[in-house]
Design a protein around this nucleic acid. Structure first.
Lengths: 206, 206
DNA sequence: CGTTATATTAACCATATGGTTAAACCAAAC
DNA sequence: GTTTGGTTTAACCATATGGTTAATATAACG
């Protein structure tokens, strides 16, 4: 409704994203978001009517960007090997670039999965171009054709996602237990992708 | 300091565990914990001096129980294959039985990893019987002996933990995307263990 | 300029919440 | 029975926080 994209609104969204990622929904402070966005607290209520509203907006935005990227990978001529290569790479690179993503999503996944899944469902059904079911159906067919070893599409996909996403959530934990410190994040993520792709291909490709 | 184990204290700890798991640290309400434990709010401050104190106590207790169980698996004569079989089984069964564990740990892992890692460090160093480093050193040696394909112990362990733990965090997400609904939890976890063990052994065993 | 619609702010408000305290309760010890 | 020490409670307190509002600034536009 304004000339272009409202810069104030965008700053708030960005600031809120960081705050929610760092402290979770309950821990996030509207005042902190406002200060971080360089505006008055009332602005948050002006653009988004409540804390909940702001959160939901971010959730939708984050998930939308997320699924859009994911969608790009899922071309019609996708092979099992290609999926196992591209998916972790995309996931890990995306999350390494936007650490808030993982934290917000993981947070919500723990705290209120139904809400998040509802949003995902909405986004997916909106993507008529390429839904989720086709992928899972294809995974099932791959197994029928003897291309993969995992019969259940759910577990097939879970294995891929688990290895990719845990790189972020669990990194500090495994570091602490092992005492192994990673030199640089960049190097770590490169090796992580390699390891994940390797395990997946050896583990689920026939 | 009393005759045996204080039943009030235990009830509070149990109630707090559920509350923190459900709502996270910031979202948890002391009053709710008290009500759920069937006592006055002041009791919480009597036994544990603050919300933070209560939380830390639980964290230590949870992590302690966790590591004790894990430790049982790590016998001196452990083979790579045995690790890849027993570890996911233990993890998944343990977490399936105590869903609060995952939620609390995951929550803290996202929100305040340094704190959690500090606690883990304390517990581990307390276990002189079997530290963490020996395991990682052994994983490294397995690769030198040509038994495994993953050269980096950190990634080796991350792959195992990721596949196991994500079964809980990510289950609702993958369900929502795929549209596949799991019949019974018991059946799901059984198949989950089978899938994880299969991928790990095929993927990282030579 | 004057009007209008949108942004933006300072000052408030109601309430929830972590935390305190002083008094009471209760079991065992004497 | 009374003292003693741990246990339990109701009633408070200070403050933080989500949310509101009325007034003001800003820009658009005729």
């Amino acid at each position: 409704m304004k000339k272009d994209k409202n810069p104030g609104r965008e700053k708030i969204l960005k600031a809120a994203q960081n705050e929610f990622a760092a402290r979770g929904f309950a821990g996030a402070r509207m005042e902190a978001i406002a200060r971080s966005a360089g505006c008055n607290k009332a602005m948050l209520f002006y653009y988004f009517s409540s804390k909940e509203g702001l959160y939901q907006t971010i959730l939708k935005e984050v998930m939308g960007e997320f699924f859009t990227k994911i969608n790009g990978v899922l071309t019609p001529d996708l092979t099992p090997a290609a999926l196992m290569e591209k998916f972790p790479e995309l996931y890990i690179q995306l999350f390494a670039r936007h650490p808030e993503f993982v934290r917000i999503v993981a947070f919500d996944l723990i705290h209120d999965p139904d809400n998040l899944c509802g949003i995902m469902g909405g986004i997916i059904s909106q993507m008529t171009h390429f839904g989720p079911h086709p992928l899972f159906e294809r995974i099932r067919r791959w197994h029928e054709q003897g291309l993969t070893s995992e019969p259940d599409p759910l577990h097939f996909m879970m294995n891929i996602v688990a290895l990719s996403i845990f790189s972020f959530i669990g990194k500090p934990m495994v570091e602490a237990i092992s005492g192994i410190r990673v030199a640089s994040d960049e190097e770590f993520y490169r090796r992580r992708v390699a390891s994940v792709v390797n395990v997946l291909k050896r583990g689920m490709l026939k």
